[in-house]
Design a protein around this nucleic acid. Structure first.
Lengths: 164, 164
DNA sequence: TTTAATGTGTTATATTATAACATTAAGGTG
DNA sequence: CACCTTAATGTTATAATATAACACATTAAA
């Protein structure tokens, strides 16, 4: 029933260095293709978010940028996040007001976010069927869907379910 | 393909007074059943949100509460909204940081919100199939879903699509 | 009629995000 | 290269959203 060939990377043991490098490489390529400038702040912001699969608040990212020698004023981080989000390299979790890097920016589509409330990790699952079904349902009601937000909160396989 | 027998009330001409009264009545009944106190602030907050199908920010609601003779400090409105949301009488639109009254609090389940970016109106559509499908997909990946957020942004039937 | 629990008032502050304008850097064109 | 235009960044200020903490009041229940 799963919509695609996913492995829920974030919840699975994996070579994270590889995971991170691949994502950065993909972003670099896409920026070239799109004639966009992956400036130092933008790159570092992406790297910061790629350090783990846990979503960070804008001000957490900002602190890390500051420690890395960049500025410490809010617009710095919001601009970098804005750029990265526009390009689909980073996603915002609306329910959390937090940001997470896209792990496969080149093949990201119809994402649904699975947020573990125990460990905080976020897996991005592509759900094209569900997404299209929702849009079709809306369309039948006369509503033209432009964008959608899908976020699940729960407990991942590696975390113990809450005791009763 | 629609999941349920809905009419997308918010986007349709309807007797809004009736609509509003029915919702308040339903909430009153549910409060009795659940032995909860629908205090004046809580009731007024609900009424304010029921004035239209447009989502309001917490501070917009607060202003209206103040004009109605209630306090003007943030905790007032956040407490009222907190109570109403806990009970499912009001929903928060995460993408908008705004609040909207539930039109059918007694039969509300698996809601997906359709937000018209032209007129701002919000329709609540029950999508149990899609919702269960998402949870099932997640479950197959070892993820136990507790809560979900589904919000579509687009253009409703009554609004002109944006010109090119 | 005291008590325990719930709800409200109030002060203060935390958190998230943007507007506006000055300055600098990059890339394109003659 | 020198100029210019655009894009990006620096900076100040403030807006918008939300909660903590504690005092006081009301309710319902014992």
């Amino acid at each position: 029933m799963a919509d695609s060939n996913s492995n829920v990377l974030a919840f699975t043991k994996h070579d994270h260095r590889r995971c991170k490098n691949a994502a950065i490489k993909a972003v670099e390529l896409l920026c070239e293709e799109r004639k966009l400038r992956l400036t130092p702040v933008r790159r570092r912001t992406l790297e910061i978010l790629l350090e783990s699969h846990i979503a960070l608040g804008a001000y957490e990212v900002l602190e890390k940028l500051a420690k890395a020698g960049f500025g410490e004023k809010p617009p710095l981080v919001y601009r970098a996040l804005g750029f990265l989000m526009e390009q689909g390299f980073v996603h915002k979790l609306e329910k959390l007001n937090a940001y997470v890097a896209c792990v496969e920016p080149n093949r990201c589509a119809h994402p649904c976010f699975l947020v573990c409330k125990q460990c905080g990790r976020v897996a991005e699952q592509s759900v094209p069927k569900v997404s299209k079904q929702l849009a079709a349902t809306a369309q039948q009601l006369g509503f033209s869907t432009a964008t959608s937000v899908m976020e699940l909160s729960g407990v991942c396989a590696q975390c113990p379910t809450e005791k009763s």
